[in-house]
Amino acid sequence: MLAVMGPEPRANSEPALLEFQAVSFEVPGGPTILDGVSLAVPAGKITVVVGPSGAGKSTLLRLGNRLEVPTAGVIRFRGEDLGLGDPRALRRNVGMVFQKPVPFAGSVRMNLLVAHPGATESELENVLDRVGLNGSFLDRVADELSGGEAQRMCIARTLLTRPVAILMDEPTSALDPENRSAIETLARDLANEGIGVVWITHDLDQAHRIADRAFVLIDGRNASEEETVAYFTQRMPEGES
């Protein structure tokens, strides 16, 4: 059941794995992309962030993986300010899956070894099984995979760093319905394994299908209750009320 969350985490909500507190982000000499956004990501749940294009959803994820740093506010991972630790260790704990699959040159095996250079053959096969591929893919050229296969390989690559949270930036936006459904199921499996999943989408049907919790971003800030209701009402899938 979709639970739409306001700017502040609810008092009875699960302890946050990743927590954004009044986070702002401005491009130097440019526009403000995020303005005082707060949200909490618990373990073992799918937290969906929805909002119109340009609302700052992708920037929020980049901040969570520390590919960007906030200009104000704090982001905490397991209660620690993530700006204080080693970003490389953080990124292995908080994985990132990009909107467009990004295969590196070479075979699937070479791609997976980038994430875990010491992985054994069985570890590589297991992670491919986990994302719905199999060991026969290991010697395939990564650039020649279909969109769905490439995205699964990218998820497998991320899983090899053994993350406790995964940030997924519209991971199915370029995929056909069959692959989209498979990756949604995979996200649910990951959440069931205890991983905190953050999933960005502007597809409300998808948000309803997969979200345990949902946050709405509008113009770079948490939507007010009225805006949230209006957003979901305006764009409510047919047949729902």
């Binding site: 993986n65 590919l67 990124r91 990132m96």
Partner: peptide, 8 residues
């Protein structure tokens, strides 16, 4: 950035 995101 995908490589950095993997902790490289």
């Amino acid at each position: 950035e995908a490589r950095l995101a993997l902790g490289q």
